[in-house]
Write a protein that binds this DNA or RNA. Structure first.
Lengths: 190, 190
DNA sequence: AGCTAATCTTTACATAGGTTAATTTTCTTC
DNA sequence: GAAGAAAATTAACCTATGTAAAGATTAGCT
């Protein structure tokens, strides 16, 4: 299990003093399967770190359809990132798909450390860059690859995950209906 | 016309000394319609700022299909951002769709200024965050909206652009074929 | 102005994938 | 382990969108 400390240090080095200040802002929190970490409608204020468990981030369309924007597994940050950084109303929901262990901090208190700890702002910069690169990759794959190719990629990248959560969540993450994913699986099995 | 200086200051304040160091790294460059700023295959090293003109960023699929990931208009940064920040091989091409005026800098020299000018690293952080938020928005729209809705949004956001570049580039940017966009336009006209 | 090439539209056809509803399978929980 | 709920599959049908090719229109030269 990767600690928050190791996770951050994996991104960029940090002075011990910066780490102390950061660590002091995170408090443990549990989510039970089905609980929400954030819901749409208000500006996001908190950032979380998943120590264990699975969380889906999804957007809701006008007709009630849901789109699983991301499936988070430990270790990773969760929260309404776009809302946190822009200050706009959050439009994303994040629901625990299993029981989860989190560490949670107030985002504004964290960003308040940037002036005192430029090495922490560097972490934030690199994180934002990594998030961007991941999004760009996903965007290209959504447009350039067939649903079948996306499914195969998913199995490579997140092996086993398809047996831990309902298939319709994976379908939504892949941008297809559950029915279509079922067809794809059938045709692959042959 | 927005200068590089104003563009950067619009993101986050900057000391005059930082600006001087940054500005010294940018050199003017012209692109003629059809010229490429970057092509896939090597790690990206340069970042550009468009003072005027239009550039498309596109990915190529295995079968030669192209997907216009982004249409850049002045003022904005261009370059193989994902490659610059990760150091991975660049997979994106960027082609001038009109004659362009650019300012171009070596990316490593720029990032070398972060230690000396934390206020510039702050600019970089905020930029990365904004890029991320824009990508996320685009991702959601690609999956949740119909091609017609995406086209209408495009016309709102980039008014007039559809008359400056070939329609098939816009179709590709919207994630549909030129034929389909033509059908959409016809049905809207009625 | 007129020629050529580029762009856009249209037609005809094929297909991936959506929707709905019924059925089967798997998981919970008492 | 039986009953009920949740999840997954299947079938039937439909639509958006792709591809290819032909025509029509527009734009860029010289």
């Amino acid at each position: 299990m990767v600690s928050l400390r190791d996770f951050i240090l994996g991104i960029s080095p940090l002075s011990e003093s910066a780490w102390q200040d950061i660590n002091a802002l995170f408090l443990p929190k549990q989510l039970r399967k089905g609980d929400y970490f954030i819901t749409e409608g208000k500006t996001a204020t908190q950032i979380g770190f998943i120590s264990s468990g699975i969380v889906r981030a999804f957007a809701k369309g006008k007709n009630g359809q849901e789109y699983n924007k991301h499936l988070f597994t430990a270790p990773s940050f969760i929260g309404g990132y776009a809302s946190l950084i822009t200050g706009n109303i959050n439009k994303i929901n994040q629901e625990a798909l299993t029981d989860c262990e989190l560490l949670v901090a107030d985002y504004n208190k964290l960003t308040g450390l940037y002036d005192k700890h430029p090495d922490f702002e560097r972490v934030a910069r690199k994180l934002a860059e990594l998030f961007f690169a991941a999004k760009e990759q996903r965007e290209i794959e959504l447009v350039m690859l067939s649903a079948e190719e996306r499914y195969l990629l998913f199995r490579e990248r997140m092996p086993g995950l398809e047996f831990e959560i309902p298939l319709y969540h994976i379908a939504s993450y892949l941008g297809v209906s559950a029915v279509q994913l079922s067809r794809i699986r059938k045709s692959l099995a042959r």
